[in-house]
Design a protein around this nucleic acid. Structure first.
Lengths: 206, 206
DNA sequence: TGTACATCAGTGAACGCGCGTTCACTGATGTAC
DNA sequence: TGTACATCAGTGAACGCGCGTTCACTGATGTAC
């Protein structure tokens, strides 16, 4: 096949990004080769450079365009839940075994943060921007401060959930892995769900 | 130089593992090449295979032999602190800017868990074993259950701290990065430090 | 609407490069007597 | 303790391989008249 129409080109580009989005989460950026990616898309690797200037540029674009839809899938149920059930809706969507077992379909942050931290690149900037958008959406779902009165509750919840998925995937013992997820789910549910505020004021630190 | 004595060989092996330990945390396993590693050690790459059967075997050994000393550095201050200050000692050692800014000297778990999760290999088994030893030591430092009565508090704290370092490194905005660390530090300090137990019982979930 | 030409999406061979690993070799270290 | 031989830590060239990227080419699509 020699060439396709302009609308086909736009479609091809989206196919590449869709496959890259999953392949990157499954194997890391370093684990995704352009020839393998293009083979999965169903084209030869030469075409890649008709769509992107470089692998690096494509990764940056994947982060810029594809992270939000994952966040959307994770937070939308919470956003349409009643105030009282929002935190549990986030926890149910994030800290479950299916999410743990399918990194290719799941949140970018546990999977890719380690690799991203090593780069100084356009991709890193896009990743950081996506993280900020995630924090903002999460903040709208979580009570302004937790039961003990801390601020930045969304940062605590975001890193707690990311760390739980991260370690639950790293551990090779399924029983321990399940315990990590359920311990964190129960813990954050109790702490972050609005209820009567705690009578004990947070102790001053140091 | 043609060959060195047997004690020198043992020393060389330790040099390789020491460099690998830092290089792996800085650049990931995929980012460490045998030629580059051996050059850093001060030897030619051919010698590598007098010490290890393969790169993979060397990584497994690094995890088996070098993770514990990092955990030791992070938990020893807490273990020798008074009961009342143990959680704060852990948090001070783990959730600080220096740890965030020096992954090569810091905890393996935030840096390497993502990459490790992708492999099925001897290295993964050793990594999992090290994680279990870490959880056990952390459990001895953290109150048996947190202020709201949850068990597996060490799993919550371990994943919360790993996630905080992970995201604090991934974010490209230093101010936000600081906020992640300090929000988590303050939060876990209040929740996990022994004090009068909370009067509210944990709410049943679902 | 039909024709002639320009464009460019997709092809597939080829590039230089660094990787993990192998191997014939060197000569100091270890061992047997 | 001294000598002869075996061992093997370290050397450096070489291997096959897959990577990211380039490029001359093809022929359908887009455009100008």
């Amino acid at each position: 096949m020699a060439r396709t129409s302009r609308t086909d080109k736009a479609r091809t580009r989206q196919h590449i990004l869709a496959h890259a989005s999953r392949a990157i989460r499954r194997n890391g950026v370093a684990g995704v080769s352009i020839p393998a990616l293009m083979k999965a898309v169903g084209l030869t690797h030469g075409t890649f450079y008709a769509h992107f200037a470089s692998k690096e540029a494509m990764v940056a674009e994947t982060y810029a365009e594809r992270i939000d839809e994952v966040i959307d899938g994770l937070l939308r149920p919470a956003e349409s839940a009643s105030q009282r059930n929002r935190v549990d809706a986030v926890l149910d969507a994030y800290l479950n075994n299916e999410h743990r077992d399918n990194p290719a379909e799941g949140c970018f942050f546990p999977t890719m943060s380690g690799e991203v931290s090593r780069e100084v690149s356009p991709a890193r900037v896009e990743f950081g921007n996506a993280l900020r958008r995630y924090f903002a959406r999460l903040a709208a779902v979580v009570p302004n401060s937790d039961r003990t009165g801390h601020r930045d509750a969304e940062l605590v919840l975001a890193s707690g959930m990311a760390g739980a998925i991260l370690l639950a995937r790293a551990v090779d013992d399924p029983e321990l892995s399940d315990r990590i997820l359920s311990a964190c789910r129960d813990f954050y549910s109790d702490i972050f769900t609005d209820s009567q505020p705690l009578p004990i004021e947070p102790k001053a630190r140091k």
